[in-house]
Design a protein around this nucleic acid. Sequence first.
DNA 1: GTCTATAAAGTGATAGAC
DNA 2: GTCTATCACTTTATAGAC
Lengths: 237, 237
Amino acid sequence: MGIPERKNREKQALRERILGAARRIVMREGFGALSMRKIADAIEYSPATLYLHFASRDDIARALCEEGYAQLLASFAPAAHIEDPRERLHALARAYVAFGREHPQTYRLIFMEDPSYTGAALRSAQQNGELDEAGDAAFRMLTDALDALKASDRIPADADSAVWAEALWATLHGIVALSLTCPVFPLAPLETVVDTAFNAWFGAPSTSRGGKPVDVAPAMRPSVTAARARKRKAPSS
Amino acid sequence: MGIPERKNREKQALRERILGAARRIVMREGFGALSMRKIADAIEYSPATLYLHFASRDDIARALCEEGYAQLLASFAPAAHIEDPRERLHALARAYVAFGREHPQTYRLIFMEDPSYTGAALRSAQQNGELDEAGDAAFRMLTDALDALKASDRIPADADSAVWAEALWATLHGIVALSLTCPVFPLAPLETVVDTAFNAWFGAPSTSRGGKPVDVAPAMRPSVTAARARKRKAPSS
DNA sequence: GTCTATAAAGTGATAGAC
DNA sequence: GTCTATCACTTTATAGAC
């Protein structure tokens, strides 16, 4: 029974060639420039052949989104091992923004083009694990870190981790998306903006190792987070 | 010399009809569905005529962006009169998000489509005033409020208002943009996300004020599948 | 100024031969 | 499984008649 397996492998291989060519076109010319003919030309097959592997151009776009999203998740891996939740979150934030800047067309395709594309990417990430409420792994990385921060009293005790995670994600998306589309954003270095937002959310990093964050201005009214942000300025990187 | 003036008026009037038709198409079907032919059909002129008024489809798109951006700025006006800088900022934030949600296609066109469109919108707003560095009026509304907060010690003294303003804008853009493109965002009510982000930035609202406390219903998150069920139409711009 | 007519170049997708 | 050939459109933009 080796022949059907070989045929299957060959079919799979062509599928990969199609996706590879499509990915290269998107990276170089943007998703708008992706057409079935262009892909076919690139791999030296006829356009009709593509339809043996993908039902439509949208189908190819969604497959690219799944790939890209997996790549984004993979870029979080180094951060996952950082013990301190604040540092971990910061590393995640930097990784997220870095991915968007390094793969602008891919990021656009996944998160700025079409809801069905974004949906395909997100769904692909949770189709293997059990489908609990919170959903995908990356989101849980955020909520876990936020829970840890809450447990160690570094964000307000009544903070809803899920909502904070959503808002935090939106912030990072906003920084990436705006920097990809708005010619005058950011004026300040991108990392300064990221760090400014991060410090506004979670306060300036604690100065002394192991020490609890210093209470600087006990008389101020704003919440713990805002009060802690009072400490210092944003470093780049 | 009244005749040239009348002709000029008539020419201007047709220009407005073109833009009006274009705007309606974008609002109803999205920018992707905007074509010269469709505009021409809508106003019962030939496609060729459009080129007497606009050099290209991009040119029309940019004009729409300028209109839309002016509309966005206008929606800030009520907030401008609020005295307390924190309340003012909060009202601005809500107005920004409301505009994006109420005119999704217009918001997309201005801020999520093409850098040249975004640039056209931003440039149009400052072409009358003096062109100082900070740029447009809306941005200055942010920095002014932030400066006031800093003066009354409600944000860190060393905060760079310009950078904070950029980061804050990015946060709001992220919330709007993600909610327009990501099927599962937000799970929590949109206003909860906005308020959560706002309170993370500026602390919980002043205690004795009638304002709403931060976190409302931590447990009411709808399930992912439920959130996914709602499909995305193209409502009004 | 506005029209008709058309150029020139795409597009996604499919039928049917091999 | 892959091809050729093609359908049935779409698009922006322009030339030249009136």
